[in-house]
């Protein structure tokens, strides 16, 4: 019964969310779009930071790789930008594989420092117009507008629905992932890597897999971002972006899908609501983060334990 009620509540919430663009001006729809983009970025980082316990403060680098892959291939070869989604996942994932392979054995804070370095290296390489294809500090402009079934996406409302669908797909797939051998393995290595290895789990493999999957997902968000903005530049992929994503995960609830969604809504949405307080809002924002980390270290909505169907199956049949 409670599951039924939960489904109804979810459907109502979705319906309201889906109708919101009809009542909001394009500025606020764009704020919702930002929240959606950061929510997916947060969910992708949550695989690495929340589920696997690997500190990654350079996630913007993978986001950037995806965005630049889309921008370069679209402007040079005129491939429709959304067709490039799988390729953006591939390049960001491969980049993460090459980068993370030698550093993945590092523990907590050491890994954190190295990922900060990687984020900066990528940003500076983009500014320096590496290989002459990234457009330097000006970035790349003239990315063509994406179209789906003949409809060219132009307005924030169009992108709202694209981002909404992608967010829902991400939530659905990552939820299934949590209830699987793969999802559990990430949690085991976060809880106790020695015990995980001693229980037969290839910890090095899963650390790397978490990194690559999280990065690949961020790469796809980069694609959507490039399609939405039609212009990208290195200043969209600064250290601050990585910090925001990290804060979304930690503040919302490490390892919890709903926590991360709420974290994105609060961290991206609240500063917009309090714009009239101008400079003071960042002060309030910072103070709120400090208070959270003192009084609720597990985040606002920490993950709930998974529940399993405990009725054993006997030769395909169920016994009560």
């Amino acid at each position: 019964m409670s599951i039924h009620r939960k489904n109804v509540l979810g459907a109502v919430f979705l319906a309201i969310l889906g109708l919101l663009p009809l009542f909001l001006n394009s500025y606020w729809v764009d704020v919702l779009n930002s929240i959606g983009i950061y929510a997916i970025l947060g969910l992708s980082l949550n695989l690495i930071v929340g589920h696997s316990g690997l500190f990654n403060l350079g996630h913007a680098a993978f986001y950037a790789v995806g965005a630049y892959t889309a921008a370069i291939l679209n402007t040079h070869f005129h491939i429709p930008v959304l067709w490039l989604l799988p390729l953006c996942a591939l390049t960001a994932g491969l980049f993460a594989l090459v980068i993370a392979r030698p550093i993945i054995h590092l523990r907590g804070d050491y890994l954190c420092i190295v990922t900060i370095g990687i984020g900066e290296i990528v940003r500076i390489a983009l500014i320096n117009n590496i290989f002459g294809i990234t457009g330097g500090a000006n970035g790349i402009f003239g990315i063509s507008r994406p179209s789906i079934l003949g409809l060219t996406l132009r307005t924030p409302t169009h992108f709202f629905y694209l981002i909404l669908v992608f967010t829902l797909l991400t939530i659905f797939l990552f939820h299934l992932l949590e209830y699987s051998r793969f999802g559990r393995a990430l949690n085991f290595l976060r809880e106790d890597a020695v015990a995980a290895e001693g229980s037969g789990i290839n910890t090095a493999h899963y650390k790397l897999a978490a990194f690559v999957l999280g990065a690949a997902w961020a790469g796809m968000v980069g694609n959507i971002y490039a399609a939405k903005m039609t212009i990208i530049s290195p200043e969209s992929f600064t250290f601050w972006e990585s910090v925001l994503m990290f804060a979304i995960v930690i503040l919302g609830g490490s390892g919890s899908i709903f926590g991360v969604l709420l974290g994105a809504a609060l961290i991206v949405g609240l500063p917009e609501l309090f714009r009239e307080f101008a400079s003071a809002r960042m002060l309030v924002f910072g103070a709120a983060m400090v208070a959270m980390m003192i009084f609720r270290t597990q985040g606002i909505l920490p993950p709930r334990p998974r529940s399993y169907d405990l009725f054993e199956t006997v030769e395909g049949e169920r016994k009560a």
Binding site: R184, A185, D192, S199, I201, P305, R306
Partner: peptide
């Protein structure tokens, strides 16, 4: 060395 914050069942699933 158990996985403290996970269920008893999940520990065996490890």
């Amino acid at each position: 060395r158990l996985f403290q914050n996970m269920s008893v069942l999940e520990n065996v699933l490890a």
